[in-house]
Structure formats: structure tokens, C-alpha cells
Amino acid sequence: MANPVISGAVDITDVVCPVTFVKVKVALEELEDGQVLSVRLNDGEPVQNIPRSLKEEGQRILKLTDNGDQTYTLLVRKAGD
């Protein structure tokens, strides 16, 4: 699969729950439906919870990559309301 075009990026490694997910929601808000957001997040609680919370809201998780420095990069496609 070709890499998707990334339309926005947010780094949530400097904040803790629940501001992590809040910042992801704010970043998604700025995209159009169907665009892709790249999220840099920490290992542990964020990587366990953020993808699940996004799925619960109907967003589509495309890819989760281990960056090898205890952070991950998550690609999520924005769904319509």
C-alpha cells in the first residue's frame, strides 16, 4: 500500500491523559473528512488508549509505527461526522 498523504501532525508526547486525546481531537478538527493526521505519542498508556478512543469515535486507524525511541507514530484518517 502506498503511503497516504499526511495533511496534519500533532505531537502529544509532552502532555498526559486526558489532554493527549483532547489535542488529537483538536488536530483532527482542523482537517477535512478523509484527510490523514500523524500523531506522535508515547509508549505505555497513550499508545494503549489513543487508538482505541479514536476507533470508538469512528475514526480509521491506518498505521502504528514504533519509532524505536519509546514513541510511536500513529496515522489516522478523519471520518465524517
Binding site: 486526558p18 489532554v19 483532547v22 489535542k23 481531537k25 470508538e56 469515535e57
Partner: peptide, 11 residues
């Protein structure tokens, strides 16, 4: 964002 986080989290 922090003040209103519990609202923003609500779908």
C-alpha cells in the same frame, strides 16, 4: 483545552 478537556472528550 485543559479546562474544557472533560467536555471536549465527549463525542
Amino acid at each position: 483545552l485543559e479546562r474544557y478537556s472533560r467536555h471536549i472528550l465527549l463525542q
